[in-house]
Design a protein around this nucleic acid. Structure first.
Length: 373
DNA sequence: TATGATGGAAGCGAGCTCAA
DNA sequence: TTGAGCTCGCTTCCATCATA
């Protein structure tokens, strides 16, 4: 058996293919697949429903007797359960709480990585020993390898339906609570099937039983390839027939990408039938030529006076995720989550701003018409 | 020689301009 | 009025060039 075939089987198993049992080398422990195998990832064993037992992530310790189980154990996060739903802190959404992690067998990991021919691709210059110091992933693990990060920003919810006139949709309105601002963090821009979203962030106006009105931010972060199926299913569960998406270029980027992932996961796409208000085009219409460009970061800085501190450059997001998957530190992964958190909060602010400016323009025009008469 | 900066390309789709 | 073609934004990777 060649090393390449072993690597292929390892990758298939990490992707959720339980049939990819190694033909040589240590055997998988009887009756116990890898954690990744049970979720029914796309391209593997199909999109079988998640077994009820699979929801208990903590009961899913990979068999250490297997080299695959051992690798899985080494690269998997250590469940923390630090943040609980509905009780998450407001801002910052992702507090970097260091959690003691049992010492890992670094020399053995290095040897295995060399054996498998894996390259170090992360941007972190820290040594593997330094990288493994902090493996804390924020949020609560709600399915194997899938984390839910919830936070809440107290703010007034618009009391009246928001006019979509700013988006050239005269006479149309949307209920504030129906809006779902969303943004994804992806592994690239290869298009088609090559890119996957490893994080989905969504914000909606919500009345918290204890904290009152505000913006609820929910983020799904997958820490294994096999968690994608569960992530897509969870995201679909957030949507209602009345949900109206709002994003920044999500109509052209995030939505098509997610639709592709739903197709590959053999799940019904919940995005297609829903309405979508993309804020990019009205923003570009209104502010083109005002500033150097209409990128979200520029709009955020110029229009909303938001300056991000310690923001992780977008180019480092996939590297941070891949670095974590390969046993590295979660520090940059938490910064990705903070970046995504800020993006969806900004979307909500931008929507209100666009609605208000459109309203102001109309009132001004009405006054001018009266003056003209 | 090593490192850092820069620009182009990838897929997608709305919106704009311009010619027919 | 219609259709073609272009621009722009999303984000990451990689080749190329400049500098130390």
């Amino acid at each position: 058996m060649s090393l390449s075939l072993d690597k292929l089987r390892l990758l298939r198993r990490q992707a959720g293919d339980a049939t990819a049992a190694p033909a040589s080398g240590p055997a998988i422990a009887p009756g116990r697949g890898s954690a990744a195998a049970d979720t029914g990832a796309p391209g593997g064993t199909g999109s079988a429903p998640l077994p009820a037992a699979a929801n208990d992530a903590r009961a899913r310790t990979p068999a250490p007797a297997s080299v695959f189980g051992w690798v899985e154990q080494e690269i998997r996060h250590k469940p923390t359960g630090a943040a609980a739903r509905e009780t998450a802190p407001a801002v910052p959404a992702v507090p970097p709480v260091p959690v003691p992690v049992p010492a890992l067998r670094k020399p053995e990991i290095g040897g295995l990585r060399r054996l498998l021919g894996l390259r170090d691709r992360g941007l972190s210059t820290a040594t593997p020993r330094e990288n493994a110091k902090d493996r804390h992933v924020p949020g609560e693990e709600i399915a194997p390898g899938l984390f839910l990060i919830e936070s809440f920003v107290t703010q007034a919810i618009p009391t009246e339906p928001l006019s979509l006139a700013f988006a050239k949709r005269e006479g149309e309105q949307v209920q504030p609570q129906d809006l779902l601002f969303f943004d994804t963090e992806t592994t690239g821009l290869a298009g088609g099937t090559g890119t996957r979203a490893f994080m989905i962030g969504a914000a909606d106006w919500h009345t918290h039983p204890d904290r009152g009105d505000g913006l609820r931010i929910r983020q799904l972060l997958m820490t294994t390839m096999a968690a994608e199926t569960a992530m897509l299913r969870e995201f679909a569960g957030w949507l209602q027939p009345s949900t109206v998406f709002s994003s920044y270029n999500g109509r052209c980027y995030d939505a098509p990408l997610l639709k592709t992932r739903y197709r590959l996961a053999r799940q019904r796409c919940p995005i297609t039938p829903l309405d979508h208000v993309d804020l990019l085009f009205p923003t570009r219409r209104r502010y083109r030529g005002t500033w150097e460009n209409c990128r979200l970061a520029t709009i955020e800085r110029q229009l909303l006076q938001i300056v991000r501190e310690d923001d992780l450059p977008g180019s480092e997001a996939p590297a941070a995720w891949l670095n974590y998957l390969r046993g590295g530190s979660a520090v940059n992964l938490r910064r990705v989550a903070e970046h995504n958190h800020q993006d969806v909060v900004t979307l909500a602010l931008l929507m209100r701003r666009l609605v208000a400016e459109e309203q102001r323009d109309r009132e001004t025009l009405a006054l001018q018409a009266i003056d003209a008469v």
